[in-house]
């Protein structure tokens, strides 16, 4: 637990608070541009594509594909014990997000791009829950 405590934790800002509030409820809630009719990530108060400030928050399925990954054999941040998998997940709703792939041995032969994944919540403390991902139950 000591090493867990040393990991960098997110400090929500006013424009990202709804995302982290959603995580706390174990709901993957992303900003949605009503002009583009599309989700985007990371959260801003405006759409980075069309610059509309007409943004809603909508819930996503928590399912997606492993867009890419790497197995980290050296800790890139304090509190992480290698090897661990850093992953970019492409959500079924479109946006990509950074996460860790868990629930699988971090070995090259186990992990491949475009495998199906689903969110697994990690409650870090009373305020912060991280959206991690695991291989989807088939």
């Amino acid at each position: 637990m000591t090493t867990e405590m040393q990991k960098p934790i997110p400090y929500p800002s006013p424009e990202t608070q709804p995302f982290w509030d959603g995580c706390k409820r174990h709901e993957l809630t992303l900003p949605y541009c009503t002009k583009c009719d599309a989700f985007f990530f990371y959260p801003r108060q405006f759409c980075p594509t069309c610059f509309s400030w007409d943004i809603e928050w909508r819930q996503c399925s928590g399912k997606g594909t492993l867009h890419t990954f790497a197995i980290q054999y050296r800790p890139q941040m304090p509190g992480f014990t290698p090897p661990y998998i850093t992953a970019v997940v492409q959500l079924d709703e479109g946006p990509r997000m950074m996460t860790n792939l868990v629930g699988i041995e971090p070995m090259p032969e186990n992990v491949y791009c475009d495998m199906r994944v689903e969110v697994q919540w990690e409650d870090v403390n009373d305020e912060i829950t991280l959206p991690l991902f695991k291989p989807a139950a088939s």
Binding site: P8, Y42, R74, F80, T86, A87
Partner: peptide, 20 residues
Amino acid sequence: QFEMPFGVGGPPGVYSMCAM
């Protein structure tokens, strides 16, 4: 907020994902 909490930091950790 969206990278470091997942152990993503220096160039080796990022370029490796791009290469993959």
